[in-house]
Amino acid sequence: MTTLDVRQLSHSTRLREVSFSANNGQLVGVIGANGAGKSTLLQLLCGVVPADSGTVWYQGDNLLQTPMLERRQLHGYLPQNPLVETDVSVTHFLQAGLVNLKIKQPASELARVVDSMQLEPLMGRPVTQLSGGEQRRVHLARALLGNQPWLICDEPTASLDLYYQLQVMEVLKAQATQGKLVTIALHDLGLAARFCDRLLLLNQAELLAQGTPAEVLSDENLAQAYGIKARWLCTDEGVSLLPSLLTSTSN
């Protein structure tokens, strides 16, 4: 049985009739230009925003009719720009993030996540006084609490330096390798090509293409969705993308 089966999912003008499926053990990247509908799709998947129409079947259950408390046990969610205004410590922040999770040993769950995200040095510091990148890691750690089978992250590498971008992608890849379904929105096509098993390319609120990175990141799709042409650098370590504007006058 397919783990996730999304059919004709729509939300006003921000997303129109998106259908796709995905399985446990996959890292699924949602890509597209600004305003293409990436965040809206993730918000609809995790129930933060109600869908106008369509269905989201997860392991045989219609999620759009599943109570939020039950959904809390199914997926963790990291929004695009979470802002913390309350001056609490990282420890308190993560402890509060355990709310409504049905886990037997919250302390050991907290320790597991702190360890995997290398947050130990930050634990006593107020969240509001952390750098943007440190805050991002803390937020991702909060989303990882509970060890749910499905992880939904909106631009998890935003505002991170190169070291932590790779670290976060390694963590997410490891989650998928452990058998979870991981759905992330990404702007960095190089990271998407290197780490994701499947890609969904959104363009103007519609799904333009889906499949493996090689299938989706074609010249034609990139030109249509981003207005760019790309050269790919392939090494044993992975791939990297050199973009240039289709309408560029620089050369």
Binding site: V48, M68, L69, R72, L83, T86, A96, V99, N100
Partner: peptide, 20 residues
């Protein structure tokens, strides 16, 4: 009290934490 406490999170995160 748990719902009140969860307001340290941004509205999007709060909406995903399983509260009605």
């Amino acid at each position: 009290r748990h719902f009140i406490r969860a307001h340290i999170f941004d509205p999007q995160t709060l909406a995903s934490l399983g509260f009605r």
